[in-house]
C-alpha cells in the first residue's frame, strides 16, 4: 500500500534520511524505532508532506505522493497524528472532529464516523462541547487519534503516542490502536517505548543515523534484544563533539 524507495531528506545541508526504503502493506501494523535523532519523525513528516524529500519516491496505492503538501496527501487516505498531538486547542472537541473529517464533507458520513470514534473513546462523548485544550493529557491524545480517524484513512501514521503520558494511559491507547488496526486500518507508528511498540506490531524497521539498519518481523526482533541494543544503545550514538577527550 505504502512504498518508500531510496528516500533522501535534508535539513538544509544536513542529511536526515539517507536512502530509506520501507513498505507498509494492507492492514499491517508497522513500528519504526531507533535512537533519538535517527530520523523517525523526519520519515513520518516526509510521508505526510510536512517535509519534501530531496531524492527517492513515496507511492501510496500506486500514486506518487512525495513532495505533495499535507493537505493533498490526506486526500489520498493517509492521516498523520503528529508528535505533541497538534490539536486545535481553543476549539471544541466536536469542531476538532469536524476538521478531522474535512476531506469527507458529507454530513451523514460525519455523524456515522463520530458515533464510531465515540465508541472507541466514550469519554469524548461527555467532553464533546469542551475546548480541546482543557482536556487531560490522555484525553487529548485520544482526541488526536479520534480526529485522525475521522478522515477514514487507509493508513494511520502515529508519532510518539506515549509522549508525556502516564504508562497506564499509554497501555490503554495501544489497546485501542490494535483494535482499530483489527478493523482494517493500516498503522505506521514511531514509538520510544520499543518493547511496547514491538509487542503490538507485525513488522518493524530500526532506523539508525538516517538509514534503515534492521527490518523484520516484530516478534523476531523482540527476541533478539542484543540486536536492538546495538542500534538503540550507546554504539548508535552520534559521535559527541564534547565531553570526550
Amino acid at each position: 500500500m505504502l512504498e518508500i524507495q531510496d528516500l533522501d531528506v535534508c535539513y538544509g545541508p544536513v542529511p536526515a534520511l539517507r536512502g530509506v526504503s520501507m513498505v507498509v502493506g494492507d492492514g499491517e501494523m508497522v513500528a519504526l524505532v531507533g535512537a533519538n535523532g535517527a530520523g523517525k519523525t523526519t520519515a513520518l513528516r516526509t510521508i505526510s508532506g510536512m517535509l519534501s524529500p530531496t531524492a527517492g519516491s513515496i507511492t501510496f496505492d500506486g500514486e506518487r505522493i512525495d513532495g505533495l503538501p499535507p493537505y493533498k496527501v490526506i486526500a489520498h487516505g493517509v492521516a498523520h497524528l503528529p508528535e505533541g498531538r497538534a490539536l486545535f486547542s481553543d476549539m471544541s472537541v466536536m469542531d476538532n472532529l469536524r476538521l478531522g473529517a474535512w476531506t469527507q464533507p458529507s454530513e451523514k458520513d460525519f455523524r456515522r464516523r463520530v458515533a464510531e470514534v465515540m465508541d472507541h473513546f466514550p469519554i469524548l462523548r461527555e467532553r464533546s462541547k469542551q475546548a480541546a485544550g482543557t482536556l487531560s493529557g490522555g484525553e487529548q491524545q485520544m482526541l488526536g487519534v479520534a480526529r485522525a480517524l475521522m478522515s477514514e484513512p487507509k493508513l494511520l501514521i502515529v508519532d510518539e503516542l506515549s509522549l508525556g503520558l502516564a504508562p497506564k494511559i499509554v497501555a490503554q491507547l495501544f489497546q485501542i490502536l490494535t483494535t482499530i488496526n483489527g478493523q482494517g486500518t493500516a498503522v505506521l507508528m514511531v514509538e520510544q517505548f520499543v518493547h511496547m511498540a514491538l509487542q503490538h506490531s507485525n513488522r518493524a524497521y530500526v532506523l539508525a543515523k538516517g538509514e534503515v539498519a534492521l527490518e523484520g518481523d516484530a516478534k523476531e526482533l523482540r527476541d533478539r534484544p542484543e540486536l536492538l541494543a546495538a542500534y538503540l544503545g550507546d554504539d548508535a550514538e552520534e559521535p559527541e563533539p564534547v565531553g570526550a577527550r
Partner: peptide
C-alpha cells in the same frame, strides 16, 4: 471552520486537508 482551524493550529489544519 477552516479559518478557525488554521488560526488555532496551522500545521494541524494542513494535516486535516
Amino acid at each position: 471552520l477552516a479559518m478557525r482551524g488554521a488560526a488555532s493550529n496551522r500545521t494541524a489544519a494542513g494535516l486535516m486537508g
